[in-house]
């Protein structure tokens, strides 16, 4: 299943590496990354594929949120179709 991972936090060295390490541990494949720094805040959106993971999506979302807390980042993993539904006619 495709999901969107968003990462927001104070910019510093190694955020992408750390987030990707967590994703890799959970067998989540990154398909696309776009990233910017807005008002000093690192802001990243990744489109990922979770089909190789054995964990249910709700569990993955919780794990990533916890990982984010440890790194002082806001990390969310959400199903992609919610954004398509809300922003595409």
């Amino acid at each position: 299943m495709k999901a969107v991972v968003t990462v927001v936090g104070k910019d510093r060295v190694g955020i992408i590496a750390a987030v990707c390490t967590h994703l890799a541990k959970l067998q989540i494949n990154v398909l696309d990354i776009s990233q910017t720094v807005m008002e000093g805040y690192f802001t990243m959106m990744m489109v990922v594929d979770t089909s190789a993971s054995t964990l249910p999506l709700a569990e993955l979302a919780q794990r990533m949120e916890e990982a984010g807390k440890e790194m002082n980042l806001s990390i969310r993993l959400q199903r992609e179709d919610i954004f398509d539904a809300m922003h595409r006619v």
Binding site: T43, M45, E80, H87
Partner: peptide, 12 residues
């Protein structure tokens, strides 16, 4: 294709 602004707007 999804755009980062739309995603952040939804979260906001």
């Amino acid at each position: 294709m999804l755009n980062i602004k739309d995603v952040l707007y939804t979260q906001d």
